[in-house]
Design a protein around this nucleic acid. Structure first.
Length: 505
RNA sequence: GGUUCUGUAGCUCAGCUGGUAGAGCAAAUGACUCUUAAUCAUUGGGUCCAGGGUUCGAAUCCCUGCGGAACCA
């Protein structure tokens, strides 16, 4: 099904046919030998080094053109940036036949087309490092016009701001909007820095199942699918925690995975149905050790990503420099609501919620109520990185009981800019206690909590073989990426955020 | 799920209290051998998201649907 073409698309198809008629393949097969990138030439070229730039070739997309009749300037964009090129008719076409310049270059090539050029470096009268073209090769004809974004002195004109366009056609967004590529390359730097940090300390990167028959390790609603050959339901993972712990049982001292998780829940600026959590588990450590490791890792990661330990988001400067403040969740609630809930039962918590105007329902247990109070009244106050520690046992079914404090577990969450970035604990390795916690969850499920955990008997079997004391953490990679790149929407740190399907003609 | 905002040329946008569409960039044609948001002249380009309704007449007002965004739950 082909929709009616716009005027410009028709013209480009006609040009394509004309190129072919002239014997020029608009989509040639042979590899093109590229000697330099735009950035290498801009940074490396000078009066002293000019001899090294006598025979160079670059390739890229034509982004703008300035036509002076028998001489043209154009801007070529490659993966490193843009560079100006200069092309003269009588050099390209020394003989009588001027068609290569007049017809092919000036008329049949458009903004967006990909070409390769051979030539030499030089500096224009106005001081811009450029490439003087001696020959060019058509490498890909663009049939669809790009949005015409322009830029001068860092100021962008006619920038594509339509979010729907940006998210649905990220390929065009990347070509046309300066800064988008940078955001994503910084995110990759961020992930590489995390990998280096973990690898240097003995971490082993592993892969565990995405398709799981019991969706465990977190409290969330899963996507469900069906395996035809086995005729069983399977779930896309909501977490990989229970599999990484099985590997700790198996004897690996430190495992990690960038886990793509899937949660069948609402979408907003901080939630996409598919997202990434870095989880890592380290044997013979506890949550206190994990706090120190986390703050070191984030400081190093911030510096690797941005060059400094700070980042600005929404006008607020965040400093990732270690160490981070620590406060217990009960103290945090006391500080921001005035209520001391440390010894309260469920009924007392419901009273507190009522007086704080927090909506609750009958399915919520004690843990969920504490979570609502903290989430509603406290979380937003923690802008600089802060560890919230020592959670009540009811909201943490996989966490070891606190070494000293009755009713609490050894758990922390890291809050930055008012949002949860990481969640970690001293892992529960007592198989009998773990079975009881799962049974508690089953009660919540019967009560109507559709996010409660299933019992995973195979995981319990693994624990029964003995798991060493272990510290584990999950870090929200998109949320960290948002903080480090200064983006407030998760859609701006995912190449292809989830959208309602459109009808593309 | 609720409330609000939003959808006009390839892109960015204008279009008043209703009289069937405009600008800049991009495109076409022409001029110009160091321009840089190049410049100058001329020209073309629209299912005004879709479907209903009100009206002599709807891009504009009303309703429904579809897409997008923000806030709330």
């Amino acid at each position: 099904m082909q929709a009616t073409l716009s005027e410009q698309e028709v013209i480009r198809r006609e040009k394509l046919a004309e190129l072919k008629a002239m014997g020029i393949d608009p989509y040639p097969a042979p590899l093109y030998n590229i000697t330099h990138t735009a950035q290498q030439i801009k940074q490396g070229y000078s009066e002293e080094t000019k001899d090294e730039y006598k025979e160079i070739s670059i390739a890229g997309r034509i982004m703008s053109r300035r036509d002076m009749g028998k001489a043209n300037f154009a801007v070529l964009q490659d993966e490193t940036g843009t560079i100006q090129i200069y092309i003269k008719r009588d050099e390209i076409c020394p003989g009588e036949d001027k068609s290569l310049f007049d017809t092919v270059w000036k008329r049949l090539l458009d903004l967006g087309d990909i070409i390769g050029i051979k030539g030499y470096g030089f500096i224009t009268k106005t001081g811009e490092t450029s490439v003087h073209v001696q020959s060019f090769t058509v490498m890909s004809k663009a049939l669809r016009p790009l949005p015409s974004v322009k830029e001068k002195d860092g100021e962008v004109f006619n920038e594509v701001t339509d979010l729907e366009f940006k998210y649905r056609q990220r390929y065009a967004d990347l070509i046309v909007n300066p800064g988008v590529r940078d955001t994503f390359t910084r995110i990759t730097k961020m992930k590489n820095a995390i990998r280096s940090f973990l690898n240097e300390r003995g971490g082993l990167e592993v892969d565990t199942p995405v398709l799981q028959s019991i969706p465990g390790g977190a409290l969330a609603r899963p996507f469900i699918t069906h395996h035809n050959a086995l005729d069983i339901p399977l779930y896309l993972r909501i977490a990989n925690e229970l599999y990484l712990k099985r590997l700790i049982v198996g004897g690996f001292p430190w495992v990690y995975e960038f886990s793509r998780n899937f949660r069948n829940e609402g979408m907003d600026r901080t939630h996409n149905p598919e997202f990434t959590i870095l989880e890592f588990y380290v044997a013979y450590k506890d949550y206190l050790w994990m706090m120190e490791t986390t703050e070191q890792m984030l400081e190093e990661t911030a510096i690797a990503t941005n060059g400094v330990s700070t980042s600005v988001i929404d006008g607020v400067e965040i400093d990732f420099k270690a160490p981070y403040k620590r406060i217990s969740i009960y103290d945090a609630i006391k500080e921001h609501t005035g209520f001391d809930i440390s010894n309260m039962d469920e009924a007392g918590l419901r009273e507190v919620c009522k007086s704080l105007n927090i909506q609750v329902d009958g399915t919520m247990g004690k843990g969920k109520l504490v979570d609502e109070i903290f989430g509603g009244k406290c979380e937003k106050h923690y802008v600089q990185p802060t560890f919230i520690i020592d959670y009540p046992v009811e909201m943490s079914p996989l966490t070891k009981k606190h070494r000293e404090k009755e009713g609490l577990v050894e758990r922390f969450e890291l809050i930055i800019n008012g949002k949860e970035i990481a969640n970690a604990y001293s892992e529960l390795n007592d198989p009998i206690d773990q079975r009881e916690r799962f049974e508690e969850q089953l009660k919540n499920m019967e009560r109507g909590d559709d996010e409660a955990m299933f019992i995973d008997n195979d995981f319990l079997r693994a624990l029964e073989y003995g798991m060493p004391p272990t510290a584990g953490i999950g870090i929200g990679i998109e949320r960290l990426a948002m903080l480090l790149t200064g983006n407030v929407s998760i859609q701006d740190v995912l190449f292809f955020p989830q959208m309602r399907p459109e009808n593309v003609a």
